[in-house]
Design a protein around this nucleic acid. Structure first.
Length: 415
RNA sequence: CGGGGAUUGGCGCAGUUGGCUAGCGCGCCGCGUUUGGGACGCGGAGGUCGGAGGUUCGAGUCCUCUAUCCCCGACCA
C-alpha cells in the first residue's frame, strides 16, 4: 500500500481524553478512532492488525477441529430467561433494547444460550458429538466503567469457542487441547514469555476453578501470583491457603504481579445444556447429558495489550506476525533514479506477498523515519540515491543496527 | 454507582482580581528556500469558549443545573 492512499495521519500530541498508553499510541498512529468511552472504531491500519490476530486464532481453532460460525448479536430474551441470565441482578452488564412492538431484546455479551438453542435442531444422537463451534464476533457489555483504552471496552472483538462432549472424560481431553492451543496462540502473538495460565474463580459458571490466561503488564487490572519457573499463576481472587493446597502451588515461589486477562476457559458441565434441553441418545437409546465448555480470547484486547507491552518511547512496535505491514519502504534524496529503484522494490516485494507500506509522500526523511517508528512496522527499508545499484538500507524496528543489503535478498531476510 | 479532575479552532494548550477585535504551538492552504531523524521564512483559512439557565452595564472568567471525557474505588458470569 502506498502511504499517499492512506487517509489517516499521525499526530504528535497525545489525545487529552486518554491516559492508557495503548489508546494514546494507537490513536496517535491512526490505528483506531475513539467514538465514545469504551468504544473504538478500527481504521485501516488497526483493522489489519485485528485481522492478523484473528487469523492466527482461526488457524489454531481449525486445527483443533472447530467449526467457525457467526451468531447473531440481537438476542431473544426467552432462552436467557430459562437459564436465569436475563435477570439484571444476575448479569448486570446487558445492553437491552426492544422492538417497536415492545418485544425485549438483548445485545449479545456471550453466546452459551443461543449456541445451545441452535444445536437443538441438529443434535439427537451420540453420533453427532463432539461438536466444537467458535466465532470471532463483536460483543457488547454495558460496563459500569470503561477504562484503559482497548483493555476494557463496552464493544469489543472476541473469539468464543463452545465445546459439546459426550462425557466428562472426553471434555477433559478436549479442554486440555484448548489450553495447549491457547499457549501456541499467545506464543505466535509474541506474548508467550509473559502470558501465564492462571487459576481463577469459576464464577457463576461452575463451582470449580476456571483457567485464565494473563499477560503480565503494569496496565493490567488483575492481581495474580506467578510461579515463574513452573509457568503457572493463581488469581488474587482465589488466593488462599486452602486453594494453594488444592492446586498444589508453592507459596514460596509465588510473586505478585499485574496481568491483563487475554483469555479464559470454563468447564460448564451439563448445567446449561440440561437447562436448555440439549441431550443426546446413547447407543442404548437412553437420554444423556451433554458436557459443555466455553473458551474465550479477547481479540481487540490483545491488540491493546500487544501495543502496550512492546511500545517504546518512539511508538508502537508490532511483532512480525501481526504487524499491519512487514516493511516500511522509504525513498529519500528523491531523484528519478532512486524513485524508480524504490518502485521496483515495492513491486518486487508486493509480488512476493510481503506487505509493504510504501511512504511515497513528498516529505523530509525525518518525518518518514518518525512515522515508521510510531506505526511500529517491523522492517524499514531505505533507498538513497547515493547507494550503489541494488543496495538498500535495512533496519529492524526493535534494533538500532543498520545493515546494507542487496534488495533482491530482502525477501529471504524478511520472511 | 461513590470520590477526584477536566471540557476554549481538526489536535495539544494559555487566558490575571469579570472589561476592549479570544491568544500560542501542531496540523491545514498558498509562495519561496530546504531535504538522513518530526526544517525555515512570508502570507492565509479556521473557534463564540460542551449545553441550558442565571447574576451583571459587561461573562471564556461568577452561580445553578446538565452532558461528556479521564483517574481512583465498587463492579466485571
Amino acid at each position: 500500500m502506498r502511504l499517499s492512499n492512506l487517509y489517516t495521519k499521525t499526530i504528535k500530541d497525545n489525545p487529552s481524553d486518554e491516559q492508557a498508553l495503548n489508546a494514546q499510541l494507537l490513536i496517535r498512529a491512526g490505528f483506531i478512532h475513539k467514538e465514545m468511552s469504551g468504544v473504538y472504531s478500527y481504521l485501516p491500519l488497526g483493522k489489519r492488525v485485528l485481522d492478523n490476530i484473528s487469523e492466527i486464532i482461526k488457524k489454531e481453532m481449525n486445527e483443533l477441529g472447530c467449526l467457525e460460525v457467526q451468531m447473531s448479536s440481537l438476542q431473544p430474551k426467552d432462552i436467557w430467561e430459562i437459564t436465569g441470565r436475563w435477570d439484571d441482578k444476575k448479569v448486570d452488564n446487558w445492553f437491552k433494547t426492544k422492538l417497536y412492538n415492545g418485544q425485549l431484546l438483548g445485545i449479545g455479551l456471550t453466546h452459551e444460550e443461543p449456541v445451545i438453542d441452535s444445536l437443538k435442531s441438529y443434535v439427537d444422537s451420540y453420533k453427532n458429538l463432539p461438536i466444537y463451534v467458535y466465532q470471532i464476533q463483536t460483543k457488547f457489555r454495558n460496563e459500569l466503567r470503561a477504562k484503559s483504552g482497548l483493555l476494557r471496552g463496552r464493544e469489543f472483538l472476541m473469539k468464543d469457542l463452545y465445546s459439546f462432549s459426550l462425557n466428562e472424560r472426553e471434555h477433559e481431553i478436549f479442554y486440555n487441547k484448548v489450553i495447549k492451543s491457547y499457549n501456541k496462540i499467545y506464543s505466535k502473538l509474541g506474548l508467550g514469555d509473559i502470558t501465564y495460565r492462571t487459576y481463577a474463580d469459576g464464577g457463576i459458571f461452575s463451582k470449580t476453578f476456571s483457567d485464565e490466561f494473563q499477560t503480565l503488564s503494569v496496565a493490567g487490572e488483575d492481581r495474580i501470583y506467578v510461579d515463574e519457573a513452573n509457568k503457572i499463576a493463581i488469581n488474587d481472587e482465589i488466593y488462599n491457603d486452602q486453594n494453594l493446597k488444592k492446586l498444589s502451588l508453592d507459596k514460596k515461589r509465588l510473586v505478585l504481579k499485574k496481568g491483563v486477562e487475554v483469555g479464559n476457559t470454563f468447564s460448564l458441565g451439563s448445567k446449561y445444556t440440561d437447562q436448555l434441553g440439549l441431550y443426546y441418545n446413547d447407543q442404548a437409546g437412553h437420554k444423556q447429558s451433554i458436557i459443555m465448555g466455553c473458551y474465550g480470547i479477547g481479540v481487540s484486547r490483545l491488540m491493546g495489550v500487544i501495543a502496550e507491552v512492546f511500545a517504546d518511547d518512539r511508538g508502537l512496535n508490532w511483532p512480525t506476525t501481526i504487524a499491519p505491514f512487514k516493511v516500511y519502504l522509504i525513498s529519500i534524496n528523491e531523484n528519478p533514479k532512486s524513485k524508480e529503484k524504490t518502485e521496483v522494490i515495492y513491486n518486487l516485494l508486493t509480488r512476493k506477498n510481503i506487505d509493504v507500506l510504501y511512504d511515497d509522500r513528498d516529505m523530509r526523511a525525518g518525518q518518514k523515519f518518525a512515522d515508521a517508528d510510531l506505526l511500529g512496522i517491523p522492517y524499514r527499508v531505505v533507498v538513497n540515491q547515493d547507494f550503489e545499484d541494488k543496495q538498500v538500507e535495512l533496519k529492524r524496528r526493535n534494533k538500532d543496527k543498520i545493515e546494507y543489503v542487496q534488495y533482491d535478498r530482502l525477501e529471504s531476510i524478511i520472511s
